[in-house]
């Protein structure tokens, strides 16, 4: 976080407190993300990881502090306006739209003009069509494009939702437990998918699975009881006595 990288700063969570009538899910929490960075947030259950995503995407409103995206405050904006500015989130439980085809799910995500009066028609612009086909290919669902999303296997649903989040063209992707319920092979593939995004997107990943976090080889932010605890590489965080005490559950 060098001072010279101000122009690279994409997201800044600045002293945010989320107060659920006395229980502080986030307690004066701050972090920043630079353009193109991939960051993993870990922490024990109840550390406030999902609440952090909720705050950035506008699902909960901070009682104190600010969320700055590209230098502008977004913590009071309606959800769809936050999304319109270039943030999209994958939820913990797969949030695909079950009765729509896989392709229609992605088509909704890839759509640029989301105003209702522009929805009376069936034609899809060529660039959106291309984005949908690319998204299908990236998660290996091309052969499943026509089936109802509700009939996909659990892992496929997770991938579809990741692909939807990617297809929105958002600059900042929030991936809340993208590997939940996946086996080791699927987890590896998900890591490859995220790594494949390269520098074009900024990604905030929340996950418990340490092998997945290792494969991402990204800087790690550790949260504990709604507060910032540590930040560093996975090796540094593993070696940290304080982190071990609260999270890894064994003595360093």
């Amino acid at each position: 976080m060098s001072g010279s990288a101000v122009s690279d700063l994409l997201l800044s969570v600045d002293g945010v407190t989320i107060d659920y009538s006395g229980f502080k899910a986030l307690d004066n929490f701050s972090m920043t993300l630079n353009r193109g960075e991939t960051r993993v947030v870990i922490g024990p259950n109840g550390a406030g990881k999902s609440t952090l995503c909720d705050t950035i995407i506008g699902r909960v409103r901070p009682s104190q502090g600010r969320v700055l995206f590209k230098g502008e405050e977004i913590q009071r904006l309606p959800e769809q306006q936050i999304v319109a500015r270039g943030i999209c989130r994958k939820f913990q439980a797969p949030g695909v739209l079950p009765t729509l085809s896989v392709r229609d799910n992605l088509g909704l995500a890839a759509r640029k003009d989301r105003r209702w009066w522009k929805s009376f028609g069936a034609g899809i612009p060529a660039d959106e069509k291309r984005a949908v086909e690319e998204a299908l290919e990236s998660v290996g669902l091309t052969h499943r494009a026509g089936v109802e999303a509700g009939t996909l296997a659990h892992g496929e649903k997770q991938w579809l939702e990741i692909a939807m989040v990617m297809a929105t063209g958002a600059e900042l992707l929030l991936l809340d437990e993208p590997t939940a319920g996946m086996g080791p092979a699927e987890t590896s593939r998900t890591a490859q998918l995220i790594l494949g995004l390269g520098d074009s997107r900024t990604v905030l990943v929340i996950d418990h699975d340490m092998s997945f976090v290792e494969q991402l080889a990204a800087p790690v932010t550790v949260m504990h009881q709604g507060k910032f605890l540590k930040q560093g590489s996975i090796a540094e965080v593993r070696a940290d006595a304080e982190v071990a005490a609260v999270y890894l559950g064994h003595t360093a």
């Binding site: 995407i57 959800e79 319109a84 939820f91 949030g95 739209l97 079950p98 729509l100 909704l108 989301r114």
Partner: peptide, 14 residues
């Protein structure tokens, strides 16, 4: 139909 099945998902797609 999307809003029927997942109003929040639709909202968070913008």
């Amino acid at each position: 139909r999307a809003a029927r099945d997942g109003e929040n998902r639709v909202r968070f797609l913008g």
